[in-house]
Design a protein around this nucleic acid. Structure first.
Length: 254
DNA sequence: CCAGACGTTGTT
DNA sequence: GTCTGG
DNA sequence: CCAGACGTTGTT
DNA sequence: GTCTGG
């Protein structure tokens, strides 16, 4: 699942992919984008451009905008079967740029630790998204979006049973192609991103509240394990962790 | 034909 | 809007 | 996603 | 427990 993420440097994204125009107004760094808030995304229009969408898809037929709070994600495996998402997959896709995302890892005692997940390379990512437009009772049109999820890769599996679909950079263009595309071809793009190109970092629970919006949200926290001494020397259970860290530091790029 | 649903997650 | 169920 | 609220009637 | 709000 993916219900929180960051977008700290949108300009990095639009500089890397200049065929996507930047937004009308310069974007402020975001460290804790939550459902119902504004999400920057590039929809499949002739000239892709960053626009803002309510996080949580509100289908055009919805009677109430509140349905959006439960439509923040769409399962890739069932996209083409679900009436609410089927048409959007064919006609209303978007790229959702991000610097990283959060997942809450459940510990054995039931408490949760927020983890921040980002690419090892200093580079933005983009989620596969769908969008729609809903007309409010007052006549105003509310654009909204949802993030497609898939099975977790090896990095995410110990953390959560779902993860957002991160598109490959060489698939960005195809995903927001404005003309009709065979949905089968699109579904092939929705696979788990390679784990060896990502890192997961425990962070403090500052991020838990959607009201908190600061760099503290991504500040690394000590990963407290049950029984672990507070001030540990370089003793014990180091080997495995550092072996993991090594593999994370030197990814094999495509 | 009309009526009614249309979603995900996680937990049980 | 579009699909399923009756 | 997590945090936080969760209700009606009737009387003043 | 379940729903709404951010």
């Amino acid at each position: 699942m993916c219900g929180r993420f960051t977008l700290i440097r949108l300009s990095d994204f639009t500089n890397l992919f200049p065929w996507i125009l930047p937004p009308d107004q310069p974007a402020q760094p975001r460290y804790n984008i939550a459902p119902t808030q504004a999400v920057a995304a590039a929809p499949n229009k002739t000239q892709p451009k960053i626009e803002y969408f309510h996080f949580g898809l509100i289908p055009s037929w919805a009677k109430d905008a509140a349905i959006g709070t439960r439509m923040i994600n769409a399962r890739a495996e069932s996209l083409s079967e679900k009436p609410a998402f089927r048409t959007a997959l064919r006609r209303r896709r978007c790229l959702i740029p991000a610097d990283g995302f959060y997942e809450w890892r459940k510990k054995t005692d039931g408490t949760k630790t927020p983890m921040y997940i980002r690419l090892k390379r200093d580079r933005p990512m983009a989620f596969a998204g769908l969008w729609d437009e809903w007309q409010a009772p007052d006549g105003s049109v509310i654009p909204s979006c949802t993030i497609i999820t898939t099975q977790p890769n090896e990095l995410l599996r110990p953390i959560h049973n779902r993860m957002p679909v991160l598109l490959r950079e060489d698939h960005y263009h195809q995903w927001i192609e404005p003309d009709e595309v065979d949905p089968e071809d699109l579904l092939e793009l929705l696979t788990p991103y390679p784990a060896n190109q990502m890192v997961a970092i425990p962070v403090s629970n500052v991020v838990n509240s959607a009201k908190h919006e600061s760099p503290d949200c991504i500040k690394p926290a000590k990963d407290e394990l049950p029984g672990e001494p507070r001030l540990s020397s370089a003793k014990g259970r180091r080997g495995k962790a550092s072996a993991m860290d090594q593999s994370m530091l030197f990814p094999s790029d495509p």
